[in-house]
Computed example of a mutant assay.
Amino acid sequence: MKYLAILAVLVVIGVFANLVHESKALSYLSSDPKVCINCHPMNTHYETWQHSSHRARATCVDCHLPRDTFVNKVLAKARDGYRHSVAMTFKTYGYNLRISDDAAKRIQDNCISCHKELVSQMLANSALYEKVEDRTVQMGRRCWECHRGLPHGTMRNLTATQNTFSVKVF
């Protein structure tokens, strides 16, 4: 019985190690944008970002994760990773990905943080003029409502790639 218990523990450890290896789980600890296309249907988003003006200055985590503290960044990455793994495992994502409210707030905050000199006048004007469409968002609108093409182009369907780009993974 003792050997059977040891064998069972070794099998569980082996299966777990294989899962970590096959899913490339340790790569998610990095900030490399190629991590986003490990197992996701994110090839189009990755490719359009590669051809955008943001490529030289911002990676996926710069826009999609909080930048205030390391703990918030890790917690958001864990929450998003869990949601993504469930969606990918059960194929519940469909052809058009939808951003969560939490992720939209992070991206909006990061846009404003990076472009604070450009948006400072817009923030001042939004305080003066009460024509606000969405009171939960600074300035009443999300940045991508006007800047739709940044950084992922205008294409939104996962089955097509804008400008027939192709992802080259090495």
Rank of each mutant, 00 (worst) to 15 (best):
M155D: 11
K131I: 15
I6Q: 00
V137H: 10
T89A: 13
A56M: 11
T161F: 03
A78K: 02
I37L: 02
P151S: 05
I112P: 07
H45C: 12
D134N: 15
N43R: 08
C39D: 12
E130C: 12
R55M: 12
N96M: 13
L19S: 13
N110R: 01
T48R: 06
V74Q: 10
K34H: 13
N125L: 08
N157C: 10
K2D: 02
Y82M: 10
Y95V: 12
K73V: 09
E117G: 15
H54F: 15
V74C: 06
L7M: 03
T136P: 11
K77A: 14
L10G: 01
I112Y: 06
K34L: 14
R135E: 14
I107H: 05
K91F: 05
A87P: 03
A127W: 03
C63A: 14
E133D: 09
E117H: 07
T154A: 10
V71S: 05
L158Y: 01
G14Q: 01
W144Q: 14
P33T: 03
C39I: 07
N38E: 13
D68A: 09
K105P: 06
S126Y: 07
S27H: 09
N110A: 02
Q108A: 00
R57T: 15
E47D: 11
H54W: 13
F170R: 12
L118I: 12
K116C: 04
T44S: 13
C36H: 04
H21I: 09
H40R: 02
S23V: 14
S30E: 01
T48S: 12
V12I: 08
V9P: 00
N110Q: 03
L29V: 05
A103L: 07
L75H: 04
T136H: 11
H84L: 12
N18K: 09
R156Y: 04
V11I: 04
S166M: 07
R57W: 11
R98Q: 11
T159S: 12
L118R: 04
W49C: 03
Q138C: 08
D62L: 08
T92D: 10
S100D: 06
G81F: 00
E145R: 06
M139R: 13
K34P: 05
L19M: 13
Q138E: 15
K2G: 01
D68C: 10
I37P: 09
H64D: 09
S30H: 03
T44A: 14
T136V: 07
T136E: 11
F90K: 01
F165N: 00
L118G: 04
K24Y: 10
S31A: 15
S120I: 09
W49L: 11
A56Q: 15
S53T: 15
N43H: 04
R67A: 04
V71H: 04
A8R: 00
A103T: 13
C39E: 15
L4A: 01
Q138F: 07
V12R: 00
H115N: 02
Y93W: 15
A78V: 02
A58N: 15
G94K: 02
E133H: 08
L29N: 05
C36G: 06
H21Y: 13
T59K: 14
C146Y: 05
T161R: 05
A8Q: 00
A5S: 00
N163I: 07
P151Y: 01
D109W: 07
N110T: 10
I37R: 04
C114Y: 13
R57K: 15
G140F: 01
I112S: 05
H45N: 11
V137A: 03
Q138Y: 08
V167R: 07
C39P: 11
R79P: 06
H84A: 14
E117K: 15
R55E: 14
S166G: 05
